[in-house]
Amino acid sequence: MADEFLLQVGGVSKAFGGVQAITNLSFRLFKGEILGVIGPNGSGKTTLVNLITGFVRPDSGKVFYKARNITGLQPHKIANLGLTRTFQIARPYDSLPAFKNLIVPLNSPRVRRTRGGKLGDIEAVAIDMLEEVGFERDARVPYKTAGSLPLGYLKRLELARCIALKPDIIICDEIFSGLSMSEITSMIPFLEKLHLEGITMMMIEHRLRELFRLTDRVMVMNFGEKIAEGMPQEVIENKEVRKAYLGTETS
């Protein structure tokens, strides 16, 4: 594992009214790794994503990305730095055709800058990108309105939106949730490919078996706190983790 870290979260806390969603959480995301984040429902995983990507401002603590303090920066600015996220509940633009969903990120300052303002035929680029994430090229699917697509495609569309930004980090918020086994197995190689291309990932997941195929480091959260961190195997053996999360599910 490289020593260089891309993202450092230092002692962040967040309370919604009386509910302490995250308490003094710190971790690092190293360049080129896939970090898994697991924890029971309501343990603050999604809030953590929101805190990192600027959708929610932490009460205290700091987030550093490439040694730059990004705490409290607006979400679109953070996305433009190459730190992208997917949403747990897919957020497509329902009334637009699927490929037009990608016109939005392709018009972001980051893409314009990296591509020198010249994208050529932007719609062709968008359709290529959909093909890359697993849409059939010649089928009608890319032209259908996103609102009419099944969940499997929407999850891929979420990923495509991140990839369109040519990101350094993708944070996947339960990308496998609601997908069938076959959809998941077809998505895993694609995520591995992204990883090989050098994209650092953080995956929040409930599907442990699939997650452990991808990650080499796992962080476990419970009640807004980090209760364990390490190799998947050690984490599973951890008593506290089993009590909090895994219960008697695995033997």
Binding site: F55, H76, N80, Y93, V104, L165
Partner: peptide, 15 residues
């Protein structure tokens, strides 16, 4: 149109 349909996703797209 994206902003109308889903402003959070537009933010996440760096716009």
């Amino acid at each position: 149109q994206g902003i109308k349909d889903n402003d959070q996703a537009v933010k996440a797209s760096g716009i």
